[in-house]
Amino acid sequence: MHNHKQMKKDIILGGVGGQGILTIATTIGTAALLEGLYLKQSEVHGMSQRGGDVQAHLRISSKPIASDLIAAGKADMVISVEPMESLRYVNMLNKESGWLITSMNPFKNIPDYPTIEDLLKEIWKLPRYITIDAEKTAKDAGSIRAANIIILGAAAPFIGLKYESFEQAIRAIFAKKGDDIINMNLKALKMGFDYAQKHQ
Protein backbone atom coordinates (compact mmCIF):
# COMPACT_ATOMS: atom_id res chain seq x y z
CA MET A 1 0.00 0.00 0.00
CA HIS A 2 1.31 3.48 -0.75
CA ASN A 3 -0.08 6.94 -0.34
CA HIS A 4 -1.34 9.03 -3.18
CA LYS A 5 -1.20 12.73 -2.39
CA GLN A 6 -4.26 13.52 -4.47
CA MET A 7 -5.85 11.27 -7.02
CA LYS A 8 -9.30 10.90 -8.51
CA LYS A 9 -10.36 9.03 -11.61
CA ASP A 10 -13.94 8.72 -12.83
CA ILE A 11 -14.29 5.96 -15.38
CA ILE A 12 -17.25 4.89 -17.51
CA LEU A 13 -17.07 1.31 -18.78
CA GLY A 14 -19.16 0.42 -21.80
CA GLY A 15 -19.95 -2.69 -23.77
CA VAL A 16 -22.63 -5.21 -24.62
CA GLY A 17 -24.19 -7.50 -22.00
CA GLY A 18 -22.08 -10.65 -21.74
CA GLN A 19 -18.83 -9.02 -22.96
CA GLY A 20 -17.52 -8.92 -19.43
CA ILE A 21 -16.94 -5.24 -18.67
CA LEU A 22 -17.22 -6.15 -15.00
CA THR A 23 -13.93 -8.08 -15.21
CA ILE A 24 -12.23 -4.85 -16.25
CA ALA A 25 -14.00 -2.96 -13.47
CA THR A 26 -13.04 -5.58 -10.89
CA THR A 27 -9.39 -5.55 -11.98
CA ILE A 28 -9.11 -1.77 -11.80
CA GLY A 29 -11.00 -1.81 -8.50
CA THR A 30 -8.71 -4.42 -7.01
CA ALA A 31 -5.63 -2.48 -8.16
CA ALA A 32 -7.05 0.69 -6.59
CA LEU A 33 -7.69 -1.04 -3.28
CA LEU A 34 -4.13 -2.40 -3.31
CA GLU A 35 -3.01 1.22 -3.40
CA GLY A 36 -5.27 2.10 -0.47
CA LEU A 37 -7.72 4.21 -2.47
CA TYR A 38 -11.46 4.71 -2.02
CA LEU A 39 -13.73 3.06 -4.56
CA LYS A 40 -17.31 3.10 -5.79
CA GLN A 41 -18.44 0.87 -8.59
CA SER A 42 -21.95 0.97 -9.96
CA GLU A 43 -22.86 -2.07 -12.03
CA VAL A 44 -25.64 -3.29 -14.29
CA HIS A 45 -27.62 -6.39 -13.36
CA GLY A 46 -30.90 -7.88 -14.55
CA MET A 47 -32.76 -7.42 -17.78
CA SER A 48 -30.28 -5.11 -19.48
CA GLN A 49 -27.57 -7.77 -19.23
CA ARG A 50 -29.19 -9.77 -22.04
CA GLY A 51 -27.25 -8.63 -25.10
CA GLY A 52 -28.22 -4.99 -24.66
CA ASP A 53 -25.93 -2.01 -24.07
CA VAL A 54 -24.42 -2.02 -20.58
CA GLN A 55 -22.39 0.49 -18.63
CA ALA A 56 -20.67 0.64 -15.30
CA HIS A 57 -19.45 3.67 -13.36
CA LEU A 58 -16.14 3.20 -11.59
CA ARG A 59 -14.81 5.90 -9.30
CA ILE A 60 -11.49 5.77 -7.50
CA SER A 61 -10.08 8.50 -5.30
CA SER A 62 -7.70 9.29 -2.48
CA LYS A 63 -10.68 10.90 -0.70
CA PRO A 64 -14.10 9.47 0.21
CA ILE A 65 -16.45 9.39 -2.78
CA ALA A 66 -20.02 10.71 -2.58
CA SER A 67 -22.05 9.79 -5.65
CA ASP A 68 -22.24 6.28 -7.11
CA LEU A 69 -22.91 7.93 -10.48
CA ILE A 70 -20.46 10.10 -12.40
CA ALA A 71 -21.86 13.43 -13.57
CA ALA A 72 -22.18 13.96 -17.32
CA GLY A 73 -19.15 15.81 -18.68
CA LYS A 74 -17.00 14.80 -15.70
CA ALA A 75 -15.66 11.36 -16.69
CA ASP A 76 -11.87 11.15 -17.00
CA MET A 77 -12.13 8.07 -19.19
CA VAL A 78 -14.53 6.02 -21.23
CA ILE A 79 -13.24 2.45 -21.54
CA SER A 80 -15.19 0.33 -23.97
CA VAL A 81 -14.90 -3.19 -25.34
CA GLU A 82 -16.98 -2.19 -28.39
CA PRO A 83 -16.61 0.81 -30.71
CA MET A 84 -20.26 1.88 -31.02
CA GLU A 85 -20.72 1.48 -27.28
CA SER A 86 -17.73 3.76 -26.65
CA LEU A 87 -19.47 6.58 -28.50
CA ARG A 88 -22.69 6.08 -26.54
CA TYR A 89 -20.96 7.60 -23.51
CA VAL A 90 -19.05 10.56 -24.99
CA ASN A 91 -21.60 12.83 -23.29
CA MET A 92 -20.09 11.67 -20.01
CA LEU A 93 -16.53 12.57 -21.03
CA ASN A 94 -14.69 15.61 -19.69
CA LYS A 95 -14.00 17.76 -22.76
CA GLU A 96 -10.87 19.31 -21.28
CA SER A 97 -9.04 16.14 -20.37
CA GLY A 98 -11.06 12.97 -21.00
CA TRP A 99 -9.65 9.93 -22.79
CA LEU A 100 -11.65 7.40 -24.80
CA ILE A 101 -10.14 3.91 -25.01
CA THR A 102 -11.95 1.35 -27.11
CA SER A 103 -11.74 -1.88 -28.99
CA MET A 104 -12.22 -1.54 -32.76
CA ASN A 105 -14.07 -4.87 -32.98
CA PRO A 106 -17.81 -4.40 -33.55
CA PHE A 107 -20.37 -6.59 -31.82
CA LYS A 108 -23.24 -6.74 -34.31
CA ASN A 109 -26.49 -8.03 -32.86
CA ILE A 110 -28.79 -5.37 -34.31
CA PRO A 111 -29.92 -5.04 -37.93
CA ASP A 112 -29.02 -1.34 -38.30
CA TYR A 113 -25.46 -1.47 -36.95
CA PRO A 114 -23.45 1.38 -38.55
CA THR A 115 -20.29 0.80 -40.60
CA ILE A 116 -17.04 0.60 -38.68
CA GLU A 117 -15.67 3.43 -40.87
CA ASP A 118 -18.45 5.76 -39.70
CA LEU A 119 -17.81 4.83 -36.09
CA LEU A 120 -14.03 5.30 -36.29
CA LYS A 121 -14.52 8.63 -38.08
CA GLU A 122 -16.48 9.86 -35.04
CA ILE A 123 -14.02 8.43 -32.51
CA TRP A 124 -11.01 9.90 -34.31
CA LYS A 125 -12.57 13.37 -34.11
CA LEU A 126 -11.94 13.34 -30.36
CA PRO A 127 -8.74 14.97 -29.12
CA ARG A 128 -7.70 12.02 -26.91
CA TYR A 129 -8.41 8.41 -27.84
CA ILE A 130 -6.87 4.96 -28.20
CA THR A 131 -8.45 2.55 -30.69
CA ILE A 132 -7.09 -0.96 -30.70
CA ASP A 133 -7.83 -4.22 -32.51
CA ALA A 134 -8.28 -6.03 -29.22
CA GLU A 135 -9.30 -9.36 -30.71
CA LYS A 136 -6.25 -9.67 -32.92
CA THR A 137 -3.93 -8.52 -30.14
CA ALA A 138 -5.59 -10.97 -27.73
CA LYS A 139 -5.09 -13.81 -30.20
CA ASP A 140 -1.41 -12.86 -30.37
CA ALA A 141 -1.31 -12.95 -26.58
CA GLY A 142 -2.74 -16.45 -26.55
CA SER A 143 -6.56 -16.28 -26.51
CA ILE A 144 -9.29 -14.10 -27.92
CA ARG A 145 -10.89 -14.29 -24.49
CA ALA A 146 -8.25 -11.92 -23.16
CA ALA A 147 -9.60 -9.07 -25.36
CA ASN A 148 -10.89 -7.43 -22.16
CA ILE A 149 -7.46 -7.39 -20.61
CA ILE A 150 -5.97 -5.95 -23.81
CA ILE A 151 -8.38 -3.02 -23.42
CA LEU A 152 -7.52 -2.73 -19.74
CA GLY A 153 -3.82 -2.66 -20.68
CA ALA A 154 -4.49 0.05 -23.25
CA ALA A 155 -6.31 2.11 -20.61
CA ALA A 156 -3.74 1.47 -17.88
CA PRO A 157 -1.35 4.35 -18.73
CA PHE A 158 -4.14 6.87 -18.13
CA ILE A 159 -5.65 5.52 -14.92
CA GLY A 160 -2.98 6.81 -12.56
CA LEU A 161 -2.28 3.53 -10.77
CA LYS A 162 1.02 1.65 -10.75
CA TYR A 163 1.50 -0.92 -13.48
CA GLU A 164 2.50 -3.47 -10.82
CA SER A 165 -0.86 -3.00 -9.10
CA PHE A 166 -2.67 -4.16 -12.24
CA GLU A 167 -0.37 -7.18 -12.44
CA GLN A 168 -1.06 -8.01 -8.82
CA ALA A 169 -4.81 -7.60 -9.37
CA ILE A 170 -4.76 -9.98 -12.34
CA ARG A 171 -2.87 -12.55 -10.29
CA ALA A 172 -5.50 -12.28 -7.57
CA ILE A 173 -8.54 -12.36 -9.84
CA PHE A 174 -7.39 -15.27 -12.02
CA ALA A 175 -5.76 -17.17 -9.14
CA LYS A 176 -8.23 -20.04 -9.33
CA LYS A 177 -7.68 -20.53 -13.06
CA GLY A 178 -4.04 -21.53 -12.87
CA ASP A 179 -0.68 -20.12 -13.96
CA ASP A 180 -1.24 -20.49 -17.71
CA ILE A 181 -4.29 -18.24 -17.65
CA ILE A 182 -2.58 -15.76 -15.32
CA ASN A 183 0.49 -15.50 -17.54
CA MET A 184 -1.58 -15.16 -20.68
CA ASN A 185 -3.54 -12.29 -19.10
CA LEU A 186 -0.35 -10.62 -17.87
CA LYS A 187 0.96 -10.82 -21.44
CA ALA A 188 -2.31 -9.32 -22.71
CA LEU A 189 -2.04 -6.50 -20.19
CA LYS A 190 1.49 -5.72 -21.36
CA MET A 191 0.58 -5.81 -25.06
CA GLY A 192 -2.35 -3.42 -24.52
CA PHE A 193 -0.18 -1.17 -22.36
CA ASP A 194 2.66 -1.04 -24.93
CA TYR A 195 0.23 -0.32 -27.76
CA ALA A 196 -1.26 2.64 -25.87
CA GLN A 197 2.20 3.99 -24.98
CA LYS A 198 3.12 3.97 -28.65
CA HIS A 199 -0.12 5.37 -30.00
CA GLN A 200 -1.17 8.10 -27.55
Binding site: A71, M84, L87, V90, N91, M92, L93, P114
Partner: peptide, 10 residues
Protein backbone atom coordinates in the same frame (compact mmCIF):
# COMPACT_ATOMS: atom_id res chain seq x y z
CA UNK B 1 -21.33 20.02 -16.84
CA UNK B 2 -21.61 18.58 -20.34
CA UNK B 3 -19.55 16.17 -22.36
CA UNK B 4 -19.49 15.77 -26.14
CA UNK B 5 -22.67 15.41 -28.12
CA UNK B 6 -23.51 11.77 -28.82
CA UNK B 7 -23.10 11.29 -32.58
CA UNK B 8 -26.23 10.40 -34.55
CA UNK B 9 -24.53 7.32 -36.00
CA UNK B 10 -25.18 5.51 -32.67
Amino acid sequence: SEGYEIPSVI
